[in-house]
Design a protein around this nucleic acid. Structure first.
Lengths: 204, 204
DNA sequence: CCTCGTAGGCGTACGGCGTACTCCTACTAG
DNA sequence: CTAGTAGGAGTACGCCGTACGCCTACGAGG
């Protein structure tokens, strides 16, 4: 009966993501997305009820190309978890300007839920059950999101390291020394190094 | 020569924090803080150059009552780290509405730096050096900030758990089951349980 | 074929935001 | 006493999210 809808939620998400990728997260607004689509600002409200909902669509899209199929079962379970974590990190980092959005809305996106489901399966196969599994999943979530945030929005990314290196050495001997050493450690080594600490602790 | 300043940065931070604690983070604006202080909106700009700088002052204040003195040296080093992490968590959570602010600006506040310094000292005493220490500190940062965020802003806080429990059980068998088990795990058990996984992995 | 209900699309408007700029006032160090 | 600075108020601009109302194009029911 009605006039057909001229936009899909996915096209809307694509437009929003284009704005973010091009002009940064701060540039995201109902108005800029509407401009991107060549329609009037208020037009968006027929597809989302809210800016929040639009953000949700963006996250759906970012996590849409997150591979959540279980990795080859013959690999050790810790390697499989690393694979899953690496996939998540890759998908998130592929849109650096959207990281904040992705991490805060991750739990509402289908992709994020499927990811958790797969990880829980691996943990189960590793013999981790009950409350131990709950704690393990949450610890992984906490570490992964925290570490990604740290890597891309935190103090050691960009200007932060030099600021720390400039601290008074007598009051912050360890911190200044550590900042110097930090230069030798690449992002991947740091990220997966920390993850392996956590995975090692999951044993026994 | 000049007329004396009528405000201290700390009073400004206190006013901003009062607004946040009372009306939530979304209510924080130059205008509301000015109202809180009974002055005109533009008056604030003689004390801060920026909203960002005001947020920094707030974080300074929140982390101001964070105890960064090294814990009693006779305790095992892992317990001492737990103490430090617990103190940070307590200080951050004392102003729940400001958590987002506190965690994102933590690295610029003196309290946050002192905390890192103390933690690095403990790690050093535990014989952890060089790149291993860098990785350890970053992993701790990542986990702690991620876990606090998860606990207070994430999916399992508030409405999230029930949303997960309502997922189709055939597509998310592990997730729905885990959500049920999650009810039995208290926040502290979860937080420190995850932390202990990490600390256990730091050995050897 | 006509008509009617719905979705599309546009424009206007409101209250809030951060902040640039201007003007006058009150104070105090010389 | 005077000069110079900080305090304080006001106005203004260009953003923001979004409530609301109007006309238009379409396609299914009569």
């Amino acid at each position: 009966m009605p006039r057909p809808r001229s936009l899909t939620p996915d096209r809307l998400a694509a437009a929003a993501l284009a704005v973010i990728d091009r002009d940064g997260l701060a540039a995201l607004s109902m108005r800029t997305v509407a401009r991107e689509l060549g329609m009037s600002p208020m037009g968006l409200y027929r597809y989302v009820s809210d800016r929040e909902e639009l953000e949700g669509l963006v996250v759906d899209r970012v996590l849409g190309d997150l591979d959540t199929t279980p990795p080859a079962a013959d690999a050790p379970w810790r390697d499989r978890i690393e694979t899953m974590v690496g996939r998540l990190r890759d998908a998130v980092v592929r849109h650096p300007e959207a990281i904040q959005l992705t991490l805060t809305h991750r739990h509402r996106a289908p992709g994020g839920l499927l990811w958790s489901e797969t990880v829980l399966g691996i943990l189960a196969e590793a013999g981790i059950d009950g409350t131990r599994r709950v704690v393990a999943l949450r610890a992984l979530h906490g570490y992964v999101t925290g570490a990604i945030r740290l890597e891309h929005l935190g103090p050691l990314a960009g200007t932060g390291t030099s600021a720390i290196a400039a601290l008074p050495e007598d009051r912050f001997p360890y911190l200044t020394q550590t900042a110097r050493t930090a230069g030798e450690v690449g992002p991947d080594q740091e990220f997966f190094g920390g993850l392996r600490l956590l995975l090692r602790g999951l044993d026994g």
